[in-house]
């Protein structure tokens, strides 16, 4: 999987760039969870990539590129939020734009997807991010802990609370199709 064995530095760098590029769509998606506008999200991704490119050589062979990049983007986001909070600004969090959803929403499946996103949006941010990093980005629990800078026990409790809350919210407006899912 890793290209660390490559003796040629420039080839390793090229592979690093390719791996990096492969992660960009997921980074943009994560940034959209953190920030309201696509422009702000892409700015965050841009600055994270610039940071990552400067540190590419420090990436250990054994560590995976994805969690490393998620940690960079998350840390950058947190430090900016802190700065903004000091300045008294608030950043509204909005998961998706309705227009986009109306395109993807197809019948029951679409309704369920829209429900789950709407309910996800209502969760506290700490639970929401854990759920997404685990379920959607497929990071291991340990990696999520590293990305968010929290112990694995905290990852598990946030995951558990978030999922249970989401389940109850979805149950409240359960559709017949949902019960059939096993």
């Amino acid at each position: 999987m890793q290209n660390g064995n490559d003796p040629d530095d420039s080839a390793a760098c090229r592979d690093g760039l390719r791996d990096l590029e492969a992660c960009i769509p997921a980074l943009r998606r994560y940034a959209r969870l953190l920030l309201k506008s696509q422009q702000d999200a892409d700015d965050l991704v841009h600055d994270s990539l610039v940071l990552a490119l400067g540190r590419l050589h420090t990436l250990q062979e054994e560590s995976r590129m994805r969690p490393w990049l998620f940690a960079i983007i998350h840390n950058l986001f947190v430090s900016r939020m802190r700065r903004r909070q000091r300045q008294g600004e608030t950043v509204p969090l909005e998961l998706i734009d309705e227009e986009k959803m109306s395109i993807t929403a197809v019948q029951e499946e679409g309704l369920r997807q829209r429900d789950v996103l709407r309910e996800l949006e209502k969760l506290p941010e700490d639970q929401r991010l854990v759920i997404v990093l685990v379920s959607v980005e497929e990071l291991s629990y340990a990696e999520v802990g590293q990305v968010l800078g929290i112990p694995i026990g905290t990852v598990m409790s946030r995951l558990s609370r978030g999922r249970e809350r989401l389940r109850q919210a979805m149950n409240g407006e359960e559709r017949p199709t949902l019960r059939r899912v096993k």
Partner: peptide
């Protein structure tokens, strides 16, 4: 229910991955 949540979230957020990478973000 958790499995269903997981699948629904992945499906709902899958579209983002298909978006082209803006030139400004080209590594």
């Amino acid at each position: 229910a958790y499995k269903m949540q997981r699948a629904a979230l992945r499906a709902a957020l899958a579209d983002h991955l298909a978006e082209p990478i803006p030139p400004l973000l080209d590594p």
